[in-house]
């Protein structure tokens, strides 16, 4: 049992870790752009804002598993294969990016407009406001958002298991479901539950600890 579960757990952690990083790298700039380009914001670009919103909405409308399948050809180009945990990171990251963008957007919008205004009054440029005001001011909320993202990716990575991604989801489906090994199923699910609880707990703690508001 352990020789089945342990590698699967490591695979899940590996997938979640890297897809979190890559989806943040994609989603963070998108989220920032969504906010700053909207009406009356610091870099108003309504056309760009509409396009970004459109793309994100379309991507988020796809059932996640379909989107991942559609994105597998991209894995072929980037990592050279379409099967396995490394290959799964590509569609996971890209598919999660629009979700991350919305989460980031929500957090950044919580920043008091007055603080932005006072920064403008001090002669801060758009980039200075983004990096020195918007992001630091919304950090506690961003951390909660990132926590939600990680937890979502745990779930997504389990789904990815069903289409050849490996990890705990894969084990749960192949052994637990198809071979009727209920114990494997239960243990896989239990580990995922513990993972999710732990991540949420840590995220809450961290967000609370750094919040000075």
């Amino acid at each position: 049992m352990a020789e089945l579960i342990v590698p699967a757990l490591l695979e899940t952690l590996y997938m979640v870790f890297f897809s979190t990083i890559f989806s943040l790298l994609l989603g963070l700039p998108l989220g920032v752009l969504l906010v700053v380009t909207e009406k009356n914001n610091i870099w108003e670009k309504l056309q760009l804002n509409r396009i970004l919103n459109g793309i994100i909405n379309i991507l988020r409308s796809f059932p996640f598993i379909i989107l991942m399948i559609l994105l597998f050809p991209l894995s072929k180009i980037i990592v050279g294969k379409t099967i396995g945990t490394t290959a799964t990171i590509v569609p996971l990251s890209i598919a999660a990016a629009p979700f991350v963008a919305r989460i980031i957007e929500g957090s950044l919008k919580e920043v008091d407009k007055g603080i932005i205004e006072s920064s403008l009054a001090m002669g801060a440029s758009v980039t200075e406001i983004i990096f020195k005001v918007l992001i630091p001011e919304s950090m506690p909320s961003l951390i909660l958002g990132i926590t939600t993202t990680i937890i979502n990716l745990v779930g997504y990575s389990a789904m990815a298991g069903a289409i050849g991604g490996g990890g705990l989801g894969d084990v749960a489906i192949r052994y637990g479901l198809y071979r009727f090994q209920t114990d494997v199923m239960i243990i896989s699910v239990a580990i995922i539950i513990v993972l999710v609880q732990g991540i949420q707990f840590l995220g809450n703690r961290l967000s609370l600890n750094i919040n000075k508001k």
């Binding site: 006072s118 950090m139 506690p140």
Partner: peptide, 13 residues
């Protein structure tokens, strides 16, 4: 320089 009714300080700093 400018000051505001609601001070507008950076809350995390």
């Amino acid at each position: 320089g400018m000051i505001f009714q609601h001070f507008n300080l950076l809350s995390q700093k």
